[in-house]
């Protein structure tokens, strides 16, 4: 992929980092507060993102919107399974609440200057590697 074609992803990434940073979504405290049901903030962020997302995706499908590459935009639905999403999701939830960060915020926090988070990222890479090795023995 040419460098200039990658620029738009770089800029979108910057936008993502600024939004999540300014909205305190990357704050450990906000995640703790969310799981304590003591603030509407995080529910508002996720809820309004999903609401706008659902409406936008419906509109894109209804009007058969084409992407930059000229092809109609496509969505690849994931194969349905209960254990995979429920068990995997729960394990991730444990980590999300403990470290106060999901994968996006992990990287944004490094930009914020929280360098101890780099150890969490190394852990996340180890966890991903572990899943790759154990995958066939896990219920999916």
């Amino acid at each position: 992929m040419k460098i200039y074609k990658l620029l738009k992803f770089f800029l979108t990434g910057i936008l993502f980092g600024v939004i999540l940073g300014k909205a305190e979504v990357i704050s450990w405290y906000r995640i703790y507060e969310m799981f304590s049901f003591e603030s509407f903030h995080m529910y508002g962020v996720i809820g309004s993102a999903c609401t706008v997302g659902i409406v936008g995706v419906l509109i894109m499908k209804a009007f058969n919107v084409h992407g930059l590459n000229g092809k109609p935009i496509s969505f690849k639905p994931k194969k349905f399974s209960v254990p995979r999403y429920l068990i995997g999701g729960t394990i991730f939830g444990l980590g999300w609440a403990l470290t106060g960060a999901c994968p996006g915020p992990l990287f944004i926090l490094v930009g914020y200057g929280y360098f101890s988070i780099i150890i969490v990222i190394i852990g996340a890479l180890l966890g991903t590697f572990l899943y790759g090795i154990l995958r066939k023995r896990l219920p999916h």
Binding site: G88, G89, T90, I91, F92, G93, L94, G95, W96, L98, T99, A101, C102, P103, L106, I119, V120, I121, I122, G123, A124, L125, L126, G127, T128, F129, L130, Y131
Partner: peptide, 8 residues
């Protein structure tokens, strides 16, 4: 981190 990486 392992929980986050493995779980996701």
């Amino acid at each position: 981190g392992v929980l986050v990486g493995f779980g996701t």
